[in-house]
Amino acid sequence: MQNLKLNADMAAGLLFAGFGAWFAASAFSGLALGTTFRMGPGFFPAAVGLLLLVFGVVIAIKGWRVQNETVSLENVPWRALILFPLGLLLFGLAMRPLGLVIALLGLCLCASMAVKGMTPIRSVALSAAVTAVCVGIFSFGLDIGLPLLGDWLR
């Protein structure tokens, strides 16, 4: 994807319009709008959602007509984009059954492998070190009450 370019304004406009449409549609379909006296839970999201939809369309049209701001997709750190959320989810999943230590190790491994030029050995060493510091501060320093070892390991 060497030469893939994206019109930033158009993309942003469409993203905003999408958000606006979703909020407005959810508010109109599922929530009471109420009256000016007793406004319902849907009134404010519906109004602001429509406004955002309008702004999104305006931004998109402007981007389509002017076409001067493009974004290169060349350098997108795909690995980090996948590994970061994955690491966070694994952390959340591992907390209860396996405990803080293992959950942190997993997260750190994911995060470190997202950095370009990371070797497995350096990744493991780095993860172990950060995990140790983190456990030291949060568990022994602050005593936040997250179990070091989870349910399955006790």
Binding site: M95, R96, I144, G145, L146, P147, D151
Partner: peptide
């Protein structure tokens, strides 16, 4: 809440 609800599953 700091004393978390993790332990529920416990």
């Amino acid at each position: 809440s700091l004393v978390t609800s993790i332990c529920l599953s416990l």
